[in-house]
């Protein structure tokens, strides 16, 4: 835990700026690369910088989970699939900006602006960094205690969601169990047979 703050304020700022910059840059990179492999790698970088930011706000467990689960498992899965699917180069800006591009930029920009405006209006100045938190704020034990007492329902539901997703993933990814001769299936049924 970063407890020595006195001369560390500057350090905090430096770390914050670096991590934030990395976060934003990698985010833009994810959206911009034409090779999905590079995008995935950029995302890993994004996740890592986010973990640093989490650490700066004393959310240690979450930061660890971010690296372990998100970067470690989810992104690996992504990379596997990207490798399986093969290289597909797509020119991201091919065909010139269409009306959809403009509309999309507009929509995203407006969302962004709104969020900022909302926060500014609501907060009215009270969003300064305030006070210190307890020693075990953000610690695994603390998280675990909350999970199993105050937010037990969320815990259980999340686990069910994960179970369902696992089953779904297995079903979606499994091979066809029977090889039916192509000629015997009528056209509209052929796709159904293939998917299962």
């Amino acid at each position: 835990m970063i407890a020595a703050y006195s001369a560390g304020a500057a350090l905090v700022w430096v770390v914050w700026v670096a991590a934030g910059f990395a976060c934003l840059a990698s985010g833009v990179a994810v959206v911009s690369f034409s090779n999905p492999f590079y995008s995935a790698l950029a995302l890993i970088g994004n996740l890592g910088s986010l973990a640093v930011l989490y650490l700066l706000v004393s959310a240690e467990f979450v930061a660890a989970a971010q690296v372990l689960v998100y970067a470690g498992a989810v992104m690996v899965m992504f990379l596997f699939v990207i490798a399986y699917v093969g290289p597909r180069m797509e020119a991201p800006w091919a065909g010139g900006p269409s009306w959809q591009t403009f509309a999309a930029v507009l929509a995203a920009g407006s969302l962004l602006t709104e969020i900022v405006v909302v926060i500014a209006l609501e907060a009215g100045g009270s969003l300064g960094q305030d006070g210190s938190v307890g020693r075990d704020f953000g610690s695994p034990g603390w998280i675990g205690r909350i999970f199993l007492t105050d937010h037990l329902l969320a815990f259980e539901i999340t686990s069910i969601v994960l179970l369902v997703a696992a089953v779904g993933g297995v079903i979606l990814g499994s091979h066809t169990r029977r090889q039916v001769p192509e000629a015997a299936i009528p056209d509209d049924e052929r796709e159904v047979a293939q998917v299962s």
Partner: peptide
Amino acid sequence: MTGPGIVWYLGVAAFLFGTGAL
């Protein structure tokens, strides 16, 4: 601790969200 206030974090978050949306 006098690091960046929450507004900074929220700004980064908003930017990330917008980028993703884009």
